[in-house]
Design a protein around this nucleic acid. Sequence first.
DNA 1: TCTGCCGGGTA
DNA 2: TACCCGGCAGA
Length: 405
Amino acid sequence: MPAEEPQMGALHNSLAGRLVDYALKKDAGLNFLICLDLQCKTEKSCHKESNSPCPGEEAFAGQVVSHFSTVTHIRKSLEELDMDKVTAAMVLTSLSTSPLVRSPPVRPNESLNGSWKEGGFVPSSTSSSGYWSWNAPSDQSNPSTPSPPLSADSFKAFRTPSQPDDGIDEGETSNLLFDEPIPRKRKVSLLLNSIPTVEELKLKNGKVLPMNRERRVGESDYSDGEEDFYYTEIRLNTDSVADGLSSLSPVSPSLASPPSFPTQEAIRPETSCAKTETKVMTPLSRSAPTNLYLVHTDHAYQATPPVNIPGSAKFTPNGSSFSISWQSPPVTFTGIPVSPTHNRPAGSGEQKQSHTVLSSPPRVAFGLRKPRGEGKKCRKVYGMENRDMWCTACRWKKACQRFID
DNA sequence: TCTGCCGGGTA
DNA sequence: TACCCGGCAGA
């Protein structure tokens, strides 16, 4: 193991001191979104079944949830953002906070291995190529301990050595790290075969930050049929959630209608990535709600027709990346990855893997649940014994229509 | 624990 | 569409 790995891992830890992690776990032919939250400070329900204390990473491990509600919140209009170097985008306005499926316990050396083992993450086997996975928190008894500030030097260490300095000076770097949400590198294991590619994070100031080093075909850790799947959460704007809520409230026509998406032609693999994604993102910038989530993936996907996702969502593979975008409804997304070692042509009878995450929107994360009425309702006024005097809504356990606040 | 009511299921 | 109810979350 290269000597720099502990340092890299520690650095990564310090970068990742907030929110939650996720993994896509393949099991029984289905892919589940698994909460890897080591802090568990935002969603109680995610581990309620485990009945474990919040920091119980192990008990929490494998809990299948959908935690996208806490994924980095992007408030920046995509129109304002120069997206032409961003290789994937995910619009996740809301997903469930409640567990849907409980996956089998995650065994070491399974798909999550290397990234999450024995309550924490350990350096992955690919760290020597510039990837770092999550090490066990230095203080597991207090996982929510804030991460130490990063120095500009450490930030540089996080950068890919092979990448040139993009002109981001240390001052900017510091601002990025302290004033802006910290880009986090995620490692998600999938039973996919694909080729993570070079990532660049487009900063708000327009500068491009290389995030990963390219991973080449032929690297050996695809052997078990699984693949390390990385993505980077990018928080582009830190405006208040409440601000974002207003944009989710019903409903301007532009928000209510699904965004338009590029045609099949627009996402052909031979189309340049930047060009393609510009096309992809532009409609979103006009129609998507303000709390958008961007997931940056290191993944190669076969060029297949865009997959329409229920709920105004779409999965769009395009060469070396994919973008997933949707608005708040429950979603299912599927994708067909390209295998680096079994690179089959599309439509040649290959086994297409379907990756599914089912979820439903969180209620609290976006405050969509209206405040509870303060006044007396039918139930209080008439009592349970006079239930027939209640308004219909109250009888149906709906919002009271008679005593409206 | 009570209450309001959301979200989803059923007929 | 009407009706019902599990369950969440605030009081």
